[in-house]
């Protein structure tokens, strides 16, 4: 079971309290009407899915019910950090690479 730090509650809690909400930092196209089919399809369906470092959104569903971002390794499932939406992760790496 993952142990995740909720930056809003400032506490580590068990994974069961949270829901996973997919890849973080996906920007909605500023003018959807002007998107090509390819741009819209990429926005809707194509996700990074790296084997390695992944930035993702979680919600503290059984706690404060607020959203935040997490940096996690998809091979070891190690959770490196939680950070607020709108801020940048401190741990980055090449998609699928080692943390740096």
């Amino acid at each position: 079971m993952l142990s995740i730090y909720c930056p809003h509650c400032a506490e580590h809690r068990d994974e069961e309290e949270f829901h996973y909400k997919g890849q973080a930092h996906i920007a909605r196209p500023s003018d959807p009407d002007k998107c090509s089919d390819e741009e819209w399809g990429n926005y809707m369906y194509f996700r990074a899915n790296p084997r390695g470092i992944h930035h993702e959104v979680w919600v503290h569903a059984l706690g404060c019910r607020k959203f935040f971002n997490v940096t996690r390794d998809t091979r070891s499932y190690q959770v490196f950090e939680s950070y607020l939406i709108g801020t940048s992760p401190s741990i980055t790496g090449e998609q699928g690479g080692q943390p740096s």
Partner: peptide, 13 residues
């Protein structure tokens, strides 16, 4: 498991 992963293992819940 809801999260993505390549670890060939999941969570107990």
């Amino acid at each position: 498991d809801a999260y993505t992963g390549y670890g060939q293992r999941g969570s107990f819940p």
